[in-house]
Design a protein around this nucleic acid. Structure first.
Lengths: 217, 217
DNA sequence: TAGATTGTTAATCGATTAACAATC
DNA sequence: TAGATTGTTAATCGATTAACAATC
């Protein structure tokens, strides 16, 4: 995936965290927050927080700090959460099912328009009020409904093919839950969520800890 | 979370990827692989691959490269995939349900022993052959069954409490799907999977790309 | 032996942290 | 004005890449 700006991914991946923490502050009726206070909450250094925010503009005020509500709103805008994005889900298995039922995404502006699968037992079923259709209809559906994000929840061997169908339909981004590195054109955004890799990391850390404990004794 | 060795997390998070790519090579009956070939497949530089592997020992041979099968096995050991870990799932909603049904984890040595929820409509239901019990039984169950990993799939407000119950029971690691930063003792491993943050990153990249395109015109 | 490729050290690059002048 | 805290530059740290001697 080609990048279009010089903001590093390290910074980008902290933005949703800032957004979440600010939400929390607002829930607690806190109007004003300094980088130092944010540091205490987030675990990032105050310096890093100020650096990060200044990538996008001066949201703070010397001697005062940041207005929590304003900062929250600004980061929301930076993340594009003021927009609506239409999505489709390919693969209505465990994960596809779970994502389809996840109502909080819709609140953030991501609306699932279609769900597709190849299993005749699942086709026709309703998930969260959306009827599952055959995957062969996906490409046409994407074209007709102006879908931006394809959510890929297919088993490994079907995934590359499904990705191509998403791209031919015209999605701009793929949120990929399949444990595969998709081959896609440069201008297509791919975000991988690989649960195995995440679990294996847990496993590594457990083993590392055990070994450290064994040494101590 | 306190770290016990000086291997950086950047390296650790690449290990599952190496493991996966090597699996692929083995499936294609490839016996031998050089760092340069691995570079082409993985997208990491050959230099980085050699550096990474050398954190754990000299698995290669000058002039030859790496034996794919041996390397795969070694990385498996490094990741602790030669061990069995028992898990419980707290929260049998969308994600908990999906994880419970995910059979590939069991093949890698992670065995779900119990599933817990507070919803009386779900308690008693069988998921992947495991009867859902009331969450109040979880702590005792963890103690009695020597559970190492707790998988947290509860809604946000219940999560800290549920984490404490896991820890009191004696788990060593928490795989956390709740969008919360858990407060846990230093010796407890926490791996967060935050789907919102991942989706928001997609959203950011989409917006960034749009802006770049707008500028070009 | 000649060729290939590792293991490892040194150089570079990028990200994080520290420091402080600007300013509310 | 005095105090606080940002925005921003400079210093540091860590991770990645390059280079090459070691060796199969």
């Amino acid at each position: 995936m080609e990048r279009f700006s010089n903001i590093s991914m390290a910074v980008v991946r902290r933005l949703p965290k800032y957004y979440r923490y600010l939400e929390e502050l607002l829930r607690n009726d806190i109007k004003r927050v300094s980088s130092q206070e944010l540091s205490k909450i987030t675990g990032f250094t105050a310096s890093q927080i100020r650096q990060d925010l200044n990538c996008f503009g001066g949201f703070g005020q010397q001697g005062y700090g940041y207005n929590a509500e304003e900062l929250h709103k600004e980061i929301g805008k930076i993340l594009g959460l003021d927009k609506q994005y239409k999505t489709v889900i390919i693969g209505a298995g465990n994960i596809g099912h779970a994502i389809a039922n996840y109502s909080s995404f819709e609140k953030s502006g991501f609306k699932t328009m279609g769900i597709f699968d190849v299993d005749p037992d699942i086709i026709g079923e309703k998930i969260n009020n959306i009827t599952v259709r055959h995957s062969s209809e996906a490409e046409q559906f994407i074209k007709e409904n102006d879908i931006t994000i394809g959510i890929l929840c297919t088993p490994k061997p079907k995934s590359q093919e499904a990705a191509e169908c998403l791209i031919n339909g015209g999605v701009k981004a793929i949120w990929n839950f399949a444990p595969v590195d998709l081959k896609v054109p440069d201008n297509i955004i791919v975000e991988n969520v690989n649960l195995s890799e995440s679990l294996f990391t847990v496993s590594y850390l457990l083993k590392e800890k055990e070994e450290a404990n064994a040494k101590k004794r």
